[in-house]
């Protein structure tokens, strides 16, 4: 089971420009999400996106700046859940910038996902599955019974 997400993108821009898009809230908002980010170690901030109630996600992502190496590396914690202070996702987002061919290679590593996160998605569905599984069991039993009596 995968526990991290990794992507590398190349931009025909200097690391200075790419860094700005990773660290200035007004630029981050253009491609990522609105936030109250500040380029200060230990700063607590939040991203806000659309809630997905069916997925038990209230749309708030709680973050803390962990590491700053100007123009090279930035990392922050990335936590979320259904609300009421419940955290079902406790991960880290790490950006690494490398100058390359008159541009910048940007590497994203989003890691720390649990192997199995059992979100309480649709408790109703679980009931449905139990019923269906029960039905299958009944059918198998019946089939075995019929075979035994044949």
């Amino acid at each position: 089971m995968k526990k991290s997400i990794q992507y590398t993108y190349f931009f025909e821009h200097s690391p200075e420009i790419v860094w700005e898009y990773l660290t200035k809230p007004e630029l981050m908002e253009q491609w990522l999400m609105p936030s109250n980010f500040q380029l200060t170690p230990g700063h607590d901030f939040q991203f806000r996106t659309n809630p997905m109630p069916a997925f038990e996600f209230d749309g708030n992502i709680y973050c803390k700046v962990l590491e700053i190496d100007p123009l090279k590396k930035l990392s922050y914690s990335w936590k979320g859940g259904p609300g009421n202070g419940i955290t079902t996702m406790d991960t880290i987002v790490e950006w690494t910038l490398t100058p390359e061919n008159n541009g910048t290679s940007l590497y994203l590593n989003h890691y720390g996902f649990e192997e199995t996160v059992h979100l309480p998605v649709y408790p109703l569905m679980q009931e449905g599955w139990k019923k269906n599984i029960h039905k299958i069991n009944e059918l198998i039993k019946k089939a075995q019974h019929d075979t035994a009596n044949a």
Partner: peptide, 15 residues
């Protein structure tokens, strides 16, 4: 439903 139960699937598409 299994796919929905994993944050990683959601954020993979997100990124």
């Amino acid at each position: 439903f299994k796919e929905l139960q994993q944050w990683i699937n959601y954020f993979d598409k997100f990124w």
